[in-house]
């Protein structure tokens, strides 16, 4: 599937937002991403799943340098060049930008309605001062790759459907030949009948150009379909990490179990109302805590969970979990075999 070369190495990444409610009130911090570490292999698809507000987008945006990281490090290494995003100079930042791109969720707000398709797609090249002929040729190539035609180039975004707009957004991300692409809910806002088109397109492009994807989603079915490895995020932290098969079939964290259980299943008709349901709501990110961040909602908690600092530990075959009780409890995963297509 993918070779074992690490292309992106993220260490203890933190992004705090300061929150001021008034002129004289004191500043509070939203710990949107609170110490995330992982490595992304060349050519793989890493899924990041978690509920709304758990910091997925913040993580993704930090990785493309849209936010100033609070602390931690991001190392990019594609064999030819090594860039440390934190202390990169301007030229390195530019190269990093060319190598790591992002696809946004909302096909409507991600395209500037006042700029036609050609300019939208060409923008990254214009920014990086490519010669004019090269721009034209590349735009024409990439627009074909995403399944649109040259005649679409002079049109404005308002004349496209959601799926087509998403294709345009994808073309814009692909045009400077990045190596890593962060898909932030890239299919969530699309009509169900169009989602599959875009999922397939992303997969085809990966097969052809060996992109590494970080695929952010809240939809477990989509994640399961497209990813090789999965990171489960909860309240700003990764709580479980491993290959798709490991995480889905034998989850090692109660949150993952609850997520899997909560996903609506088309064949659940006969077993209505027999689910274990995670009660309560996600925690307040501005509160500092020592112990397990899922304590309030966890059915397996004991007092020690609240006092023991959270930390990811390996339970074998690179399967990491943040639950300290993982050895003592029995968790259920999906019972269906996840065989590859």
């Amino acid at each position: 599937m993918h070779d074992e070369k690490v292309i992106l190495q993220v260490n203890d990444l933190k992004k705090y937002f300061s929150l001021r409610t008034g002129f004289f009130s004191e500043t509070r911090y939203i710990r949107a991403v609170d110490g995330v570490s992982f490595e992304l292999y060349k050519g793989e698809t890493l899924g990041i799943i978690g509920e709304s507000g758990c910091g997925k987008s913040t993580l993704g945006r930090s990785l493309v340098n849209l936010y100033n990281i609070t602390s931690g490090s991001v190392l990019y290494n594609d064999g030819d060049q090594k860039i440390n995003l934190i202390n990169a100079n301007d030229r390195e930042k530019k190269n990093y930008t060319k190598s790591v791109q992002i696809i946004f969720q909302d096909p409507f707000s991600s395209l500037n309605p006042r700029i036609n398709v050609f300019e939208t797609v060409a923008e990254p090249l214009i920014i990086h001062r490519y010669p004019k002929e090269e721009i034209e040729q590349k735009v024409s190539e990439v627009i074909a790759q995403v399944g649109l035609r040259d005649e679409h180039l002079r049109r404005y975004p308002h004349s496209f459907s959601g799926g087509q707009r998403q294709r345009i957004g994808i073309a814009r991300s692909l045009i400077i030949s990045p190596k890593v692409i962060i898909c932030d809910e890239a299919v969530s806002a699309l009509d169900v009948s169009v989602q599959a088109q875009i999922i397939n397109l992303l997969k085809e492009l990966q097969a052809r150009y060996h992109y590494s994807y970080i695929f952010i989603s809240h939809d477990m079915s989509v994640i399961r379909h497209i990813c090789d490895r999965i990171a489960v995020m909860y309240a700003g932290r990764i709580v479980e990490f491993g290959t798709k098969e490991e995480v889905l079939n034998s989850p090692k964290h109660p949150y993952t179990e609850a997520l899997l259980d909560a996903v609506p299943k088309i064949s659940n008709r006969k077993s209505k109302g027999k689910r274990k349901i995670l009660s309560g709501e996600p925690p307040d990110l501005s509160r500092e805590r020592i112990g397990c961040n899922m304590f309030e909602r966890c059915g397996y908690r004991i007092d020690a969970c609240q006092a023991t600092p959270m930390k990811l530990s390996d339970v074998g075959s690179h399967h990491l979990t943040a639950c300290m009780r993982t050895k003592e409890i029995q968790l259920n995963g999906l019972s269906i075999e996840a065989k590859q297509p």
């Binding site: 849209l66 930042k93 530019k94 791109q101 992002i102 946004f104 969720q105 707000s109 991600s110 923008e123």
Partner: peptide, 20 residues
């Protein structure tokens, strides 16, 4: 707006973002 973010993610400078 996501398109402004997209421009920033592509490395656009502040003046360019403002004008464009």
């Amino acid at each position: 707006e996501d398109y402004t973010l997209a421009a920033r993610a592509a490395g656009a400078s502040t003046p360019r973002i403002i004008v464009k």
